[in-house]
Design a protein around this nucleic acid. Structure first.
Length: 214
DNA sequence: ACAACGATACCCT
DNA sequence: GGGTATCGTTGTT
């Protein structure tokens, strides 16, 4: 990963939209983490949308707490939360104070694979970043990065063509399914993933849903 | 102070 | 496909 690609960073306006749109548009974009002089990471291949107050599965549904405070930050804020002694990361969407976000669930590892293997303690490419907590471990992201501004930070960034440029998204077949691991609003199709991508997690039954257009 | 509970991952069959 | 390790956060005594 060289520095030039960072100039392709997504602007705040990208995030200032419905998480349902942003979740789909993030597929194919690059999630990057700086380790010393090097940027490591890969392509986003699986996401989930978490809405604001009307979504009972969302961390923001029962209001602001110390844990979820950054979810109410400006669009483009990084929200990192702890679950089962692990970490997962989201990109905050819509206006500050709303409380919606997109969970990034899987990455196709591309840059700094050696470093990510070391961070994960595994050698299998497929088990490097297939799952939200695996991905954070691979990138070395924890609660210390909670609240970082993805639009501006020199530690974590998301790059790629902006939403209005269809060059990446249109070449991908995006499929939706129910979100993983939730117990409420399980009927909503708010998980999105690149169809048939080798690095997308979940069981075969999760892939029986109709394709959608971003 | 404490008990319950995850937007999980791993190991086992 | 199922059981469980593991720990921060939250809501309740």
């Amino acid at each position: 990963m060289n520095k030039d690609q960072l100039e392709n960073r997504l602007p705040r306006s990208f995030y200032e939209r419905s998480p349902i749109v942003v979740a789909q548009q993030l597929l194919g974009k690059s999630l990057l983490r700086r380790v010393r002089q090097q940027w490591i990471g890969g392509r986003i291949v699986e996401t989930e949308a978490y809405l604001a107050a009307e979504d009972p599965a969302s961390h923001s549904a029962r209001g602001r707490t110390p844990r979820n405070a950054s979810m109410f930050g400006p669009p483009g804020t990084l929200y990192v939360y702890t679950i089962h002694a692990k970490y997962c990361l989201n990109a905050v969407t819509e206006a500050a104070g709303v409380g919606s976000a997109v969970l990034i669930r899987a990455l196709e590892p591309i840059w700094g694979i050696k470093r990510m293997k070391k961070n994960r303690g595994v050698d299998d490419l497929r088990r490097l970043a297939r799952g939200p907590a695996m991905l954070c471990q691979a990138l070395g992201i924890d609660r210390q990065q909670d609240g970082i501004d993805l639009v501006d930070s020199d530690l974590v960034a998301i790059t790629g063509s902006p939403s209005e440029d269809p060059s990446i998204s249109e070449s991908l077949t995006v499929t939706s399914s129910p979100r993983i691991g939730i117990s409420q609003a399980t009927e909503r199709q708010l998980r999105f993933f690149v169809d048939a991508n080798w690095y997308v997690g979940g069981r075969a039954s999760d892939h029986e849903n109709r394709p959608t257009r971003p």
